[in-house]
Design a protein around this nucleic acid. Structure first.
Lengths: 367, 367
DNA sequence: CTGTTAGCGCTTTCAT
DNA sequence: ATGAAAGCGCTAACAG
């Protein structure tokens, strides 16, 4: 038989914590190792009765190919890396948890795992961590989220020539392997909904549209560059609403909540031509809008409509329940995985994918 | 150049997508492969000048050992698996994102990666996925969260004899490799705070304390068993508050929000002996408490104190800002990783670790 | 302190 | 359709 340690008989019943080896399965089924391998990888090359015998042995021993050995031999890691945000765990991107669940499901459906990684603590530059992962050949591709207008991660991954996709549009001169929701179209839907409900004067409540700041909503938090980076999805939401308002003949006032969101929202509700509907760039800001409406002695859903973005769970507890735009997380995750697989398998860029987001109309906007 | 197929000289400049091999580094530094390996793993065995030369070559070529090869050879995967919840991505555990970030940091500090996995879609039983991961020798240990009183995952992992730790206490007859926050003590702190502020009649607003239901807060959602599983942390919170109230001479009324949380909360505020302080089992229920207070025409923080649990971001946007109990996510993550390492390295069970959670006093409880 | 040899478990030629 | 041999890149035992 084979030898584990030179000079000693071993291999047969070598205690391996995880499970059986291909050798043991072969022995149990009375075939050679390759036949076991073929059974798994090329079943059509194996005679049916042999196939059955091998399958039985596999079942009995609980055999699964050692991933490290398989990966070493084939070069395929069957693993994608997800670059987790570098923000404070106590104030995470509220969508991250659900997004990851969807991503793991979508990857798993294709036989891929998801490996989480972050830049070294204290650092905000993910490049060395990316390089380590590449050099150690741990993953077949990368998923990044919350991509900025000029994102160091995109530039770095593109330059490294490694497969990657982004949740969020990349620049025109960068690889077009992205998936994004159509923020502008979603805001168009919101505007149309409000117009249909008879609203004429609409207020937009957004955060500052640059990098991580105390006042920005959590979605913005991922930005790796501090301070000055542009947050494209916020720009898209504001502009989308603005364009739709123009097209629909709505009067739009904008308030950027750089400091106190509630005060910013109240400003939209003051004056003779006060807004009868507030559109917020996030649910967190929509909550601030609720607070502002209450502070003005008005009632949400009756006097003032409010619409949020992200559809976080707390919006459903609010009274009245908050109308909000829900991101198609499963669809986004599937598209990301498809894009990655296209590169891994075919070497082709997958192009950009724009997915619609759904407006959930609840009582806050008179639904 | 070179060939991957047998029969020809190979290895020299073989185009490997990720990076250099140990062979190339050895060649560049003019030493043998083993010396490169020693440089990385046993620097003290290598002469300083050789060390420097090898390091220079490593640096120049951007060499990092192929993880698959290293793992295959040593048996160490340097990877932990995290079993992600099986809930709806649109209603995830609100702490998951932040917890994962802390976990990845803590594991990364020890040179470990985190692999996410979930039961196959449509399934709720994680056992086959666990077995696959074990049989394929992909990870050195498992992290599970939101452990139930009688948890199938704990039983299964214990029986498999694989290292694991849980966020949440395991049963007395099960392996004691857990980390948990002291829910009871936290509620004691809350009670003491309210007593000090002069409150005498306190209402507790909790969800049903069994498995996933529409009304339960998101934290409860992870429960793999449907319907009847007990949620220990909720029980601990309710009992902890109850015990503390008794000790402090507070009058405690309990409302379990099986259906409409706001109605349950209003019940606590009605009658002549209405509560002047509401303690919620989660921030989501605390929001329901706000709604109830407003519906009664009262003011949070002045007429009625409200305290939540989890310290979610939206609590800081509420008016007045919500007092809440914050979980020490980084501490939990570190303790989990320590417990896993103890088993991986030493084979010793790490025992249970109980961490304090911090009450953040804000204006909702008159802070 | 350095170089040689062997083999982790698997898949991929190649030969039967 | 099945078996034999080679080797992915690495590290653990040896010898020098």
């Amino acid at each position: 038989m084979s030898e584990a340690t030179p000079g000693r008989a071993a291999g047969t019943s070598r205690s391996r914590r995880g499970g059986a080896t291909i050798e043991q399965v072969a022995r149990a089924a009375g075939v050679s190792r390759q036949t076991v391998s073929n059974t798994l990888n090329f079943p059509e090359r194996v005679r049916p009765d042999t196939l059955a015998r091998v399958h039985a042995a596999i079942e009995e021993l609980g055999y699964r190919p050692d991933e490290s050995a398989r990966a070493l031999r084939t070069g395929e890691r069957r693993t994608f890396a997800y670059l987790a945000p570098v923000d404070d765990p106590h104030d995470p991107n509220p969508l991250m948890g659900g997004f990851l669940e969807a991503l793991v499901d979508a990857a798993g459906a294709e036989g891929y795992r998801v490996l989480l990684f972050r830049p070294p603590p204290g650092t905000t530059d993910p490049r060395s961590a990316v390089d380590d992962l590449i050099a150690a050949r741990q993953v077949d591709g990368f998923v990044i989220a919350d991509v900025l207008a000029d994102d160091v991660r995109v530039r770095h991954l593109a330059q490294a020539g490694v497969p990657f996709v982004s949740f969020g549009r990349t620049g025109a001169d960068e690889p077009q392997n992205w998936v994004d929701i159509d923020n502008a179209a979603a805001m168009g839907t919101v505007a149309a909904h409000l117009a249909e409900r008879g609203h004429r004067r609409v207020g937009y409540l957004g955060p500052a549209e640059t990098g991580p700041t105390a006042g920005t909503p959590a979605t913005a938090r991922t930005a790796p560059a501090e301070g000055a980076a542009e947050l494209p999805w916020l720009t898209a939401r504001r502009r989308g609403l603005s364009d739709a308002a123009t097209a629909l003949g709505l009067e739009l006032t904008t308030a950027l909540a750089t400091v106190a969101p509630v005060d910013a929202a109240r400003a939209l509700l003051s004056g003779r031509r006060r807004a009868t509907a507030l559109v917020a760039a996030s649910d967190l800001l929509a909550l601030a809008a609720y607070e502002a409406v209450w502070a003005e002695g008005l009632t949400v859903g009756r006097d003032v409509a409010v619409v949020g973005f992200h559809d976080l769970p707390f919006g459903r507890v609010l009274q009245p329940p908050l109308s909000s735009v829900r991101l198609p997380l499963r669809g986004i995750a599937s598209a990301l995985v498809r894009g990655l697989l296209a590169q891994v398998r075919g070497g082709e860029p997958s192009g950009g994918v724009l997915l619609p987001a759904e407006l959930l109309i609840r009582a806050s906007s008179g639904g």
